[in-house]
Nucleic acid binder design. Structure first.
Lengths: 349, 349
DNA sequence: TAAATTTGTGTAATCGATTGTTCTTTGAGT
DNA sequence: ACTCAAAGAACAATCGATTACACAAATTTA
């Protein structure tokens, strides 16, 4: 095992000081071209790799960004990460990816861990449990840039990028209405989480806009952030519940693809025709939605783009002089409806 | 923004030296209990957070492990990461997760980046493209522990953990035979990749063991590591190809779930009955396999356990005195057959 | 009681790169 | 020829924690 070569090794070889070598490698204007060339040559010859830890210590900058995802089991987050990486890699940043597993306690732990290893910034989506944001405030208090994506703490002053979930809910329901549905149910997520609130709001507004009467019984609120299998089961149960109603709905807009998948399985089992008896639209366009029969219409969230934007927000903050007043920016991405058989009643439109 | 408190801040406050504080916090036996208590108190009061970068520089240890995954789009890798984290978190390690996107060039880049930020070890699965392993050897040459998982370079001297893919192939095909299938086709992966070789070997051996004649035309080799949608299409094409054969197979063992999913979609379309006309077994037990109709029988790979084992191998290497001779260890995990409708002909067994 | 340990801390070097401050040399300008 | 500025590089401090070594005081041992 060879020991690493350091600045001083190169310096000794050339009879100059480490500072000269450092500046030469940094292309400092005060270093002569001849010296620069010589240094570069030896550096290459010795296969010099700068010690980033030393550099980080001196510069107070680690070139590492912490990314917190509630869980990486979902394609959603994998895609976000990819989006972030795409942008920051050229700037020389590495990512540390952490999972909060939807628990506030772990979220705190992870934030502490990231601050401890001195990340240059944190990009996070908040856990479903979280209602108190002090641990996030700690990030900003430490002077570490914070960017939130998708699930953001309302009360937090931070750059953020979210999908327009209101619009997502609206276009989903509008689509169902245009397919002739008049009694539209909604599988809603927990209303203390902004995105689910917005999707519900979109649902309600679309109904109102088209003068569709609203029936309270058709809205079922539940925890849509959980183990995939559980949500699947939940979807089945909720569907059963709807079928038991005196006035049975003719469509379901589910704020989660998985609950909708469960609904489809259940309806298939009961030989209830989709979309003719009940039409369905899900949310987030999971891969499985294209696999199930009939294919599940869903809202696509442009996750990679979301990652890209989050990364850009981070870079912006880094490049903002600390003197300037910080005003949080919010980026709103537009979701898209991906239409499949589960909602397509007018086959020939 | 408050500045962080350092060891010296505490030292000054107590009129001792930083070294004493350092030792006190480290619970050094030579430090008196009274001093320790005092230090702890002030440290807490000042909300002291050790500067890990400084510590890393001095100790030559970053407490960061680099994890390389070919792509994080698959649940498979998400699960592995989780498995690794579970183990190493208590030891104070953080993970940096990188994606090679199946490209050797990116794999090299990532390895360089990880070495540059001085990770304490690298846990990796090799990209499909990779046939030359020099960049991995570089890791060991630098004295950095390396652990491979799932896709390992045969010629690499490194700890590794893999699933017994031979057994996976064997039990999959044995199951099909037991269901009465006699003409079993195989969607094989690229044979330069060990896991696909092994699955194929399992297929062949099971056939031989049960005296099932082997027909070369029933084996189709293709790239099963690709964009999910592409593999889905590929699965359809390969199925078409099999249907065109003079002697049509009555079962398919696919080395990829996604190709099998494509096959199911295709067969459903053609109204060919599954499993009666053609039975199917996939590989890796993806979530979508439980969603499709009929459910796809598949081989489960215990991915979290694989992550656990990889992490343990890493810790072992760390704790091995460098003097001792290094002998690479290979852990072989046992896969499990998850039976669903796609292969279940004897419904009443 | 003298010698030998043990105990509790302080001193100072170190990890490797960075950077503000000299210092010397060279060259231009008058 | 002389002043002054710029160029090129060295010096030395610094980032914060760690640790080999030194040293005095307290305690034990003989």
């Amino acid at each position: 095992m060879k020991k690493k070569t350091t600045l001083s090794d190169i310096a000794k070889k050339l009879n100059v000081t480490p500072s000269t070598v450092s500046r030469a490698l940094d292309d400092h204007p005060r270093i002569s071209d001849s010296t620069k060339k010589a240094v570069l040559k030896i550096a290459h010859q010795f296969n010099y790799q700068p010690n980033n830890i030393a550099s980080a210590l001196r510069k107070g900058k680690s070139n590492i960004i912490g990314v917190i995802v509630p869980t990486s089991d979902r394609q959603f987050f994998a895609s976000i990460i990819r989006g972030i990486e795409e942008i920051v890699r050229n700037e020389g940043y590495s990512l540390i990816i952490c999972q909060s597993d939807e628990q506030t306690s772990k979220e705190k732990e992870k934030i502490d861990a990231l601050l401890q290893i001195q990340v240059d910034g944190i990009i996070a989506s908040v856990a479903k449990e979280t209602t108190d944001y002090d641990h996030f405030k700690k990030i900003r208090n430490r002077g570490v840039p914070l960017v939130l994506y998708d699930r953001i703490g309302e009360s937090l002053e931070a750059n953020a990028v979210v999908i327009n979930d209101y619009m997502g809910g609206y276009i989903a329901v509008e689509h169902l209405i245009q397919q002739g549905c008049k009694k539209i149910a909604h599988f809603a997520g927990q209303q203390h989480i902004g995105i689910y609130q917005d999707r519900m709001r979109g649902y309600l507004e679309a109904m109102k806009a088209y003068n569709i009467p609203f029936n309270e019984e058709w809205v079922i609120e539940s925890d849509l952030i959980d183990d995939t299998q559980k949500i699947l089961e939940l979807g089945k149960e909720m569907t059963q519940q709807l079928l038991n109603l005196p006035e049975r709905p003719d469509a379901i807009f589910s704020a989660s693809d998985f609950a909708a998948l469960g609904a489809i399985q259940f309806l298939n089992e009961k030989k209830i025709s989709i979309p003719d008896e009940i039409a369905l639209v899900g949310y987030s366009n999971d891969f499985a939605s294209s696999i199930i029969e009939p294919g599940l219409t869903s809202i696509d969230q442009y996750t990679k783009q979301m990652g890209n934007m989050a990364a850009k927000h981070f870079l912006n903050q880094i490049n903002t002089k600390s003197g300037e007043q910080f005003t949080p920016e919010l980026t709103l991405l537009t979701p898209e409806l991906v239409i499949r058989a589960s909602s397509l009643r007018n086959k020939h439109v």
